[in-house]
Simulated scan of single mutants.
Amino acid sequence: MRLNPLAPPWYFGMQGRILFVAGRHEQAIAALRRSSPESPDVLMFLALSYMATGAAGEAARATARLRAEFPGFSVERFIAGYPVTNRDALLAIRHGAELAKLP
C-alpha cells in the first residue's frame, strides 16, 4: 500500500483480515473502516474485531447490520467459500464468531 497511495477499498479489507488473525484488533478495525462497508466479509471481521477489543456494543451493531443486510450469511459458509485453510485463522474466526454470536 505504500507503493500505491490510491489503494482501492478492498486492499483495506484484506489488511483488516490479516490484522485480525494476527491479533492486532485495533489496527484491524482501522483498516476495515477504510474498506467497503457493504461487504458481508468486512462486517463479519468488524464484528469479530470489535468483540476482541471489548467493544460489545459496536460488535452488536455490526452483527445486526450483517444479519439485516445479508440474511443468508454464515461464518461457516464464509470459511468454506473463501476457503480458509490456515488453522490459526480458522480458530480465530470461529472463536470470534462465537463471542460475537454470529450465525
Rank of each mutant, 00 (worst) to 15 (best):
M51Y: 03
A80G: 05
A59K: 04
P40S: 12
H25V: 01
A30K: 12
E58Q: 15
Q27A: 14
L66Y: 12
G54Q: 08
L19V: 02
F78S: 04
Q27F: 05
S49K: 10
Y50E: 00
F45N: 08
A31R: 11
F78R: 11
P71H: 03
F73D: 10
S74E: 06
A80K: 14
D41G: 13
L48R: 05
V75C: 13
S49L: 10
A31M: 12
G72C: 02
I79M: 06
R17G: 10
Q27W: 01
R65Y: 07
A28R: 03
V42C: 03
P71G: 07
D41S: 12
A60I: 05
V75S: 12
R24C: 04
G81F: 03
S39P: 06
Y82Q: 13
D41V: 14
A59Q: 10
G54P: 05
A60W: 02
A60E: 15
V75H: 12
I79K: 06
Q15N: 03
R61P: 00
F73M: 11
I29A: 06
E38S: 12
S74F: 02
A64P: 09
R61G: 01
M51V: 03
S39E: 13
R77K: 11
S36M: 12
R17P: 01
H25N: 14
A60P: 02
M44P: 02
A47E: 11
F78V: 06
V42Y: 00
V21E: 12
P71I: 00
E69M: 03
Y82N: 14
L66N: 06
R67N: 11
A31P: 11
L32D: 06
P71Q: 01
E69D: 14
V42P: 01
F73R: 14
S36K: 11
G16E: 05
P37N: 15
A80N: 10
E38M: 03
P83F: 06
G54V: 09
F20T: 08
Y82H: 13
A47T: 09
P37M: 15
A52G: 08
M51F: 01
F70H: 15
E58Y: 14
A60N: 03
P83G: 09
F73I: 08
E76S: 10
S35T: 07
G54K: 09
A28S: 11
T63Y: 03
V75N: 11
L19R: 06
S74I: 01
F20I: 02
G16Y: 02
A59I: 01
P40T: 13
A60D: 13
A68Y: 05
P37W: 13
S39D: 11
S49G: 01
R24G: 02
I79A: 05
L43A: 08
I79L: 09
A22L: 13
D41F: 09
A56M: 08
G72F: 02
F78L: 13
P37T: 11
R67I: 00
F78I: 02
V84M: 07
G81N: 10
Y50T: 01
L66S: 10
A47N: 09
S74P: 05
E58N: 14
M44V: 09
E76A: 00
S35E: 04
F20Y: 15
E69N: 04
I18G: 08
E69W: 02
L46Q: 11
A22H: 00
A55F: 06
H25C: 06
S74T: 15
L46W: 07
